[in-house]
Design a protein around this nucleic acid. Structure first.
Length: 385
DNA sequence: CGGTTTTGACCTGCGC
DNA sequence: GCGCAGGTCAAAACCG
């Protein structure tokens, strides 16, 4: 499926060669066959994981394999950053039992659908997947407090990390839905709050083609998450075309740029590995999908769909998400960090992730990602409350 | 042949 | 203005 490296080794840039010499990076191979085989191996892992899940019954056929013996086995450490103004709306679905930001920080209609979660899950590589955890920890109902397992204080998060932003990956949000009008409104607020992007859809193109001078480039809201995976490009249910790759400063790993292949859809995403922990992949989405996911056929999982039929068509979940807190939250696994959900309104009792040099926030901050995701004012450390 | 990836060149924003 | 780094373009190569 992936074309992998299609050029002879001599085509690889010096930087890449350098990277290969210094790291055991799966994505950096000067030998195309090597890389291809490597990809196959990774894909195999992915498939195995998917097979563990009974799509028809929405349950695991066999217990998902645990990867560690730590608390992380119990539940994934999930970190999230949300950048919107108010708490998310009520979650009256399966999402009630999920860290909302995992399934999407989308302000319009929820981002990553259940299917998409699966897709992500399937590519978690060796990490204990979120889905694994969900399957094992059927937290049902509301008024439930979820305390996420802390990640090792000395290192990066062990499993996955979600950084949320108004924008979400496969948000069906751009398509109006009776079930999430509020979400749409909220989304508008979010967009206008951040920047006036009425034609955000066309904006991307504009900013690419005739780059007018003195016209400050405005970016789509972003949504980023971190996953521990051997696979760089996670399958999120959408089709992407790689349009660029750049070496990242202070990082041996390159950053790849992808664009949604759907006509008119300007959603982009970039994927890079953490320089500190090569097993962690940081995926950043930018923009809103204006179309259903083309690769979410596992419809039996579609527990929730949106009334427009959009969600139904895609088997993706649509969360009438509105706005999030106008701060960068860390859905942390730290014992002191809790997420409490309510059945009437999603008013998570967020606790700010304590500043730690090795925290995901600082990680992103230090590596230039956070600044792209979270508005500057929000990047400021939350005040003690 | 159409779609995707690769990759050097180019553009843009920003700090100095 | 200059240099740097991030982001994008687009031709060529590649794959099914």
């Amino acid at each position: 499926m992936p074309n992998s490296v299609r050029r002879p080794s001599h085509k690889i840039t010096g930087k890449m060669n350098e990277m290969k010499e210094n790291n055991n990076i799966s994505s950096v191979c000067t030998n195309s066959m090597e890389k291809r085989e490597e990809k196959k191996e990774l894909t195999r892992t992915t498939i195995l994981k998917r097979e563990n899940f009974d799509m028809a019954n929405s349950s695991f056929i066999t217990p998902p394999p645990a990867t560690t013996t730590s608390d992380i086995d119990q539940m994934p450490s999930v970190y999230a950053l949300s950048t919107t103004a108010t708490p998310p709306p009520p979650l009256n679905s399966i999402f009630d039992m999920m860290p909302c930001d995992i399934i999407g920080g989308d302000q319009k209609a929820g981002s990553l659908g259940f299917i998409d979660l699966l897709d992500i899950n399937q590519d978690f590589g060796t990490a204990a997947s979120l889905f694994d955890w969900f399957a094992q920890n059927p937290i049902v109902g509301s008024q439930q407090q979820q305390t996420f397992v802390p990640s090792p204080a000395s290192t990066l998060p062990e499993t996955s990390e979600v950084l949320n932003n108004p924008a979400t990956p496969n948000s069906s949000a751009s398509i109006s839905s009776s079930s999430n009008e509020a979400g749409n409104d909220a989304f508008q607020q979010v967009k206008t709050g951040d920047q006036e992007e009425e034609q955000d859809h066309d904006k991307t193109k504009k900013q690419l083609k005739p780059k007018k001078k003195n016209q400050k480039r405005q970016r789509e809201p972003r949504f980023a998450f971190m996953t521990k995976s051997e696979v760089d490009h996670l399958d999120d249910g959408f089709r992407w075309r790689k349009y660029g790759q750049k070496a990242v400063k202070n990082s041996p790993y390159p950053r790849s740029y992808y664009r949604c292949t759907s006509a008119g859809c300007g959603v982009k995403k970039r994927v890079e590995r953490s320089s500190d922990d090569s097993s962690i992949v940081v995926t950043t989405y930018e923009g809103q999908h204006i179309h259903p996911s083309p690769i979410t056929p596992r419809g039996s999982i579609g527990i929730l769909t949106d009334s427009t039929g959009f969600g139904a068509a895609t088997s993706s979940f649509v969360i009438p998400q509105t706005q999030y807190q106008q701060h960068a939250y860390m859905y942390s696994s730290s014992p002191s960090l809790n997420i409490t959900t309510s059945n009437t309104s999603f008013s998570p009792t967020f606790s700010f992730h304590q500043r730690r040099s090795d925290s995901p926030a600082s990680l992103l901050r230090d590596h230039g990602l956070l600044q792209d995701i979270v508005p500057s004012q929000m990047r400021k450390e939350p005040k003690e409350e």
